[in-house]
Design a binder for these strands. Structure first.
Lengths: 355, 355
DNA sequence: GCTAGCACTCTCACCCATCGACTGCTAACA
DNA sequence: TGTTAGCAGTCGATGGGTGAGAGTGCTAGC
């Protein structure tokens, strides 16, 4: 690796990965020769292949078989793709248009962008895809209201700059009066308005220098609602097309399939697997066999608003995956999603009570 | 079937199913003889077996193999279990206690009973389990409130006898005054208070003989919120332990596994599959191969409050499943859940905004 | 009606020979 | 020195053949 490969070696290595990706079979010297290097003989290709094998790029499953790529070969292949001008070759204009169109169609229907994006990516690539939305706690409270209801109950409404945060019915004891509720509402506003959800973690009621006598219970209650919200709102992970992986011969045994699916469907382990390359624009990981999903390649793209990474979209598939297409699709979606978020954050979104 | 089987045939048939369930292998005449009928010879068992085969209860995979049960045999087996006193033999007191305890532990943690129940059932039986909650639209609106917020926005709060229904931020045009909001709030209450969600489907604003001039927009808005709620709240389906099915040799091929999983994970098709025996107390369906999940048996129990079926819990597994245990667990859970719902519906539950 | 005994059938595991796909090596050539 | 043609060698896959084992069905006798 330290040494540069000769041009012909590069060409042969690239050809080998290409062929292996499309057929899944070990690639023979004559395959490469006939389809990629008609100007030399297969014997020449053979000697180059054994050199590449010595360098650790490829291997033979057995003596009388062709060669298959090793991780190093895939890395070389991916590098050579991204070096040669990125996605432009991978998707035709028509495909690009189709994907964009289908995405926006879905987006109008479903409220959730992650879901739509995961679906589109999985459909376009035919691999298992996922989306992670990094739950930003950078939310500012605009207004807190205690709304009295009939029958000694009340609702806490918390309005933020990102929409409605939560609402919860609480019981009031029998002796509270309307004035009390009103006063409490005012107090809540004084205490919480303008605060950021992030600061609430380390928020101590006793620091507040407002009149809280008599209102401690209700303050605690609201604080609790907010804390539960913060702690329960970890990153959301959406997986789409999990079963597609089973179409590939790499996962043709039920045990392997089961192992794969049980990792893939567990949101926590997914979040952990993907946390490594959270902020990398476009990351390709091949065969890190530490975490249950070995024999896999994971390609992720981070989508941003300004400089903030707000989520990741990605594909998980067999090592021999169609990297050209996958990278093309992910770059397209990254771009599209970044734009969508950028324009949509200016509007108030619908409220979602969460408990 | 019209004819009654002899006692000995019944005994042999029961033994055969028992053995097949525990081993998964074709059962030979000598197996049955040595373990269940030591008083006769295997030749006798053999002649009985060929009689049972002629009657359509069992079959041989090939000439020199033992017998395996057909659907008729399973039906006979299940009938004979439920006839002989139901669950009492299936679960020990200790097991019953364990299951109950674990269920209530989970229930405290997770808000959602269906999820907890499905998890417990799947764990206890080692099969794929599911729970359906029939979304009852028999919900009465107790109070509607329009709460003004800063910045020309307002929130619609709908309180029902089952808890908080929904909240949504709406924009108000610039020229509305506080008095308008108050009046609108009053009107909304007049119109909707006491109404049942079911009647809203066929609700026509023009029928209302209250003053609606000037408030039509807001009434429409609220009506729309309610309608969206009703239409989007189809029955919720929870599936647990989907991958457990892959442990059984019936699904040892990836294609079969894939077909199974794709049906099982599609909430709609699940709901449809289970809609047939919605109200049956305890239903056992074996090998209805119409709907994608052939080679399966489905056992469902309906849980009720009073006379109303409010949900179903069930197990889906290979035809040769441990029916004794499954039926035992489902009856236990059915009972437990019915009680839980019965006592909990008296309290107001937490609100859940839904859009 | 039951049973012992036996012939029959069918699967499964194993072995072996053959075939075909590639490679690596060698010798010759530009 | 690099390239090529030719050839021997290696290994996996395929398919037929064989023997063991498991179970049955049938029959004759009790």
């Amino acid at each position: 690796m330290s040494k540069e490969l000769s041009e012909r070696k590069k060409k042969i290595l690239h050809a080998l990965v290409d062929l292996y990706i499309s057929t899944g079979q070990p690639v023979s010297s004559s395959d490469i020769q006939s389809k990629y290097l008609p100007e030399v003989s297969s014997a020449t290709v053979r000697s180059e292949l054994s050199a590449l094998e010595a360098l650790g790029y490829i291997e033979q499953p057995h003596t009388s078989a062709g060669r298959i790529p090793l991780k190093e070969a895939y890395k070389f292949y991916v590098d050579s793709i991204s070096a040669s001008g990125g996605g432009e070759t991978a998707l035709t204009d028509r495909e690009t248009e189709m994907i964009r169109e289908r995405f926006f169609k879905r987006l109008a229907h479903i409220e959730d962008m992650s879901k739509a994006a995961a679906k589109i990516i999985s459909d376009a690539t035919n691999y298992t895809s996922f989306c992670i939305e990094h739950s930003s706690m950078d939310i500012e409270i605009e207004e807190v209201k205690l709304v009295p209801l009939k029958g000694r109950k009340a609702v806490v409404l918390i309005v933020t700059d990102k929409g409605m945060l939560a609402n919860k019915a609480i019981d009031l004891s029998d002796d509270v009066k309307d004035e009390y509720v009103e006063a409490a509402s005012d107090l809540l506003n004084k205490v919480f308005r303008g605060r950021n959800l992030l600061e609430l973690e380390s928020f101590d009621l006793s620091e507040i220098d407002v009149e809280i006598r008599g209102f401690k219970d209700i303050l605690d209650e609201v604080l609790n609602i907010l804390r539960i919200y913060v702690s329960s709102h970890s990153d959301t992970v959406v997986v789409e097309g999990a079963l597609k992986m089973l179409d590939y011969p790499e996962y043709s045994s039920v045990e392997d399939a089961k192992a794969f699916l049980s990792v893939i469907e567990d949101k926590d382990s997914m979040a952990q697997i993907l946390s490594d390359d959270g902020s990398i624009e476009l990351s390709v990981r091949i065969g890190k066999e530490d975490n249950g999903v070995d024999k896999c390649a994971i390609v992720t793209a981070a989508y941003k608003v300004g400089d903030d990474v707000v989520g990741q979209a990605g594909v998980i598939g067999p090592e021999r995956m169609d990297y050209k297409k996958v990278i093309g699709v992910l770059e397209l979606m990254k771009e599209t999603m970044s734009k969508v978020i950028d324009t949509s954050t200016k509007h108030i979104t619908d409220g979602r009570g969460e408990y």
